[in-house]
Design a protein around this nucleic acid. Structure first.
Lengths: 210, 210
DNA sequence: GGGGTTTTGGGCCTGTGGGCCCATGGCCGA
DNA sequence: TCGGCCATGGGCCCACAGGCCCAAAACCCC
């Protein structure tokens, strides 16, 4: 799970992006700050794996970038992505620069790459090639341990198929087998009933409600 | 449920905002377009209750505004909210102008006001006074029927507090009362157990997982 | 002040969920 | 080929969930 801090004074953008990133299975936004001067202090109290910085913000995006604690990967996200901005940002320690016009999936990939310590290239073609590796979420170890059948059951569960009887019917297996799978799921997800399992499945992005 | 269309070529912003608005109980983003020229055509196929327009976009925000079908409330959302922009936008039929720096809750209130046909004032103080009326979501008929206590229980449920015992402890009431509330919730949401209730609560935006 | 709703609680009963044990056959990789 | 995981089932037990009926105090609105 990658912990992300967003530094952007445009609250609609920041809050929206936070929601969007939280719906990506392997990411969690742990903080939003609206002022570049607050960022360094905030990161002392709240460790993060990646910081997303707006270029245009109070306190200055470039300035905030320069004052980041060493070793914290940062991505500059800006309306005005130019080669000059890229050069300056990378010189000051950023892992890359992204336009606010890129799709969410590309940002997610870039965040994974940044967390991995990669410095992203500027050119669009190289960038796409680089990010292809990071396109899919690195799921939690817990989630990864789930078997195919278990995931299938979780998907149904998250869609509201909650009774043992109906689950068994949908999967053409006995109710006993369903209960066995569920018991295994509970253990792997560290939960104690199917309600918590459904919530956890939704939270992990394994399954979506409806 | 208010249907919203977002017109903005900054995909990160648009997708993020879409997620954020979808998590507001009474709103649903039904479309995102990245070009002002596409907007009018899109709205013919997909009716909307409110349109959110970016000022700075291909095709021109003001231009797109002018070409909106009559009677569709529109809000201009922009980095550069100035009195001049406000004057021009309102003259062209917009219900108001909001800076991208406002919090999500204010946008949500503004959307409700716009859907109601209100034209929003420019000055911040008047705006706040006007939006106070629209601060709380117009819930779904089904959701609206839920009582305060029932919502409280649903929130806990969606956070993984699933056993009757723990729910009772958290709320300082007897387990019997918890079960009674749950029975009432099941009926109102047309579900049959707490797993489905938790999922429905998340889906309706009444509660968020964790 | 009186009639709705909400919140609180009781009793009772049945069905289901979840814990724990075990067994078999299939499949895959070392 | 053998040991491992997986999917499939069985039996058993008990606690808990959910259904149904009812009741009283609190609250709020007209």
């Amino acid at each position: 799970m990658l912990r992300i801090v967003i530094a952007d004074d445009h609250r609609l953008f920041a809050e929206g992006l936070a929601d969007a990133l939280n719906s990506v299975p392997d990411m969690r936004v742990v903080g939003v700050v609206g002022d570049g001067n607050e960022l360094a202090g905030f990161l002392e109290r709240q460790p993060a794996d990646v910081v997303l910085l707006d270029l245009e913000m109070p306190g200055g995006g470039m300035e905030a970038l320069r004052r980041l604690p060493a070793g914290v990967p940062a991505l500059m996200v800006t309306m005005h992505a130019t080669p000059e901005v890229y050069r300056d940002a990378v010189k000051r320690g950023a892992q890359g620069v992204l336009s606010k016009s890129v799709p969410l999936a590309m940002l997610a990939a870039a965040v994974r790459a940044a967390a991995d310590g990669k410095t992203l290239p500027w050119s669009a073609t190289e960038l796409e090639a680089e990010l292809a590796v990071y396109s899919s979420p690195k799921l939690d170890p817990g989630a990864a341990a789930l078997t195919a059948r278990e995931i299938e059951i979780l998907e149904l569960l998250a869609r509201g198929i909650s009774s043992t009887e109906e689950l068994a019917e949908r999967l053409y297996i006995s109710q006993k087998t369903v209960k066995n799978h569920l018991a295994s799921i509970f253990q792997k997800l560290s939960v104690s009933d199917r309600t918590q399992a459904a919530i956890e499945a939704i939270r992990l992005g394994i399954a979506k409600p409806k």
